[in-house]
Design a protein around this nucleic acid. Sequence first.
DNA 1: GTTTTCTGTCCGGTATATCAGACACGCGTT
DNA 2: AACGCGTGTCTGATATACCGGACAGAAAAC
Lengths: 279, 279
Amino acid sequence: MTLKTRRLRVPPLPIHVGVSPAIRPDDAPHPAGRQRGIDRLIGVLDLLQRRRQPMGAGDIARALGAPRSTIYEIVERLMDAQMLESSGAEGQVFFGRAMHLFGAAYLHGDAAMRRIGEALDALSADTGMTVQCCGRRGDKYVVLECRDGAGPFRITSEIGVEVPLPWTASGRLLLGHMSDEAIRAFVPPEDFHLPDGGVLPIRTFLDDVETARREGFSETTGLANSFTWCQAVPIFGRDGVAEFTLCFVLPVDSAAKQRARCLDLLLARAQHLSHTDTG
Amino acid sequence: MTLKTRRLRVPPLPIHVGVSPAIRPDDAPHPAGRQRGIDRLIGVLDLLQRRRQPMGAGDIARALGAPRSTIYEIVERLMDAQMLESSGAEGQVFFGRAMHLFGAAYLHGDAAMRRIGEALDALSADTGMTVQCCGRRGDKYVVLECRDGAGPFRITSEIGVEVPLPWTASGRLLLGHMSDEAIRAFVPPEDFHLPDGGVLPIRTFLDDVETARREGFSETTGLANSFTWCQAVPIFGRDGVAEFTLCFVLPVDSAAKQRARCLDLLLARAQHLSHTDTG
DNA sequence: GTTTTCTGTCCGGTATATCAGACACGCGTT
DNA sequence: AACGCGTGTCTGATATACCGGACAGAAAAC
């Protein structure tokens, strides 16, 4: 239970237009002691998914605080199974072909996700704008699916990028089922620090969540960046909790009329996808 | 080392238009004895990817010849990590959200695969036909990526479906780097039994492979089914081996002129994607 | 009704996977 | 040369993960 605050060398995370990646304190707490191979394996995959770039076995071991010999073993086994493959420079590994097949099987098998994909296609075709489906992963917001907009200077995003919930319109909806206290306890304090250096007051965020819950949608701008206008609407699961969101990422200078049209399209689609019958 | 030939209840495998799934004898040989958690985990994922449908923990254990208690444990852990999620009926599990994120990271990170995806988009837009990227997984052919054609009775396929190599045009190219003896040793004898009940003579197949290697493409019909005309061209890796193929799946009654055009498009794209400079 | 079959959970023993550490090697710096 | 640093491989010891089997409850079969 050694809680190291020492900050290991953090490799530069890629910067993406539209959403900037989450700043993790560093990595999951190192529970130390002997761990199961399965847990090591999951740690390796999660690490690669967050770093979003090939890593060497030694780097992985260091980042996870795991024994090198163990990680070398596991990485080798994962490469046999094509879940990892050598990538980039000598000795670097990243996700392999098998992961793609597993992921495709998920998309194909999950009826909700398949319908959402069709909705994104339609929204993208209708408007030419960047549209996303987002959800929660741990205490972060994550892009689950997206269709990039058209045009020379299009705003794009990347599946799997994690961002603090308070930076996003979707975040206001995805926490709509929680009480103020629950939200305070759930969202890490550092996630209220915006990338421009400012700090979002928690009270403001809680009010935003309440407003979003009442109005059934959320619009934000100037949070993760200053050049996008984000619209998000909730997709409710059977339990009435906002499981996913549909989002448009519009240029901040888009016309009010177009914004209104996009929001209407989103609301119609999301209502159709939700499991609640009470519109 | 009990080699059970008793055939366990085999759940019906889904039938897909265009390509029928591979008939596995049943499952991988059960090595028996105590196994590592990691190997069990990989077994679970591979099993679900082949069966292509949710399974209960008990079913998984039976299919793998693994102890129930172990599989229950591992499935639970995988659900915690969102690599599996409950799906379908009570107690059934299938791939989860995390697998999708891992798979998307693979597609994003693998430069070759990303360029292939763009090529498929272009080919699909140009022709409106079903187009695929295929590869080898073990001794089977597998669809790695696809874009389905337009139209009311379109021919579709599904990422991840495995099929015996001799049933496909791509199979003739993917074995192009092997000697006759190597091919005989590599392809399971039962894979020469076609779904219509006929048997493909090995000699014929070897000649096909030779022809495909010489001509740089392969066309087949009447193998996996009788209503498609398949065209495949190789994408060579740095070592000169056909690592992927690009394929059109055309209706068998398509015009010769259209076929010729499609083949030309394929060849141009694949040459551009190959790592060989000797066009 | 009884019986059988399945599911999900729990428990103790032991085969072994994980771990710490050593080692050889390559590479860049002093 | 000597040194520091990082990589990849190997080994032996031991903490424990995996396994077999038991158990209760539900559901299906008879």
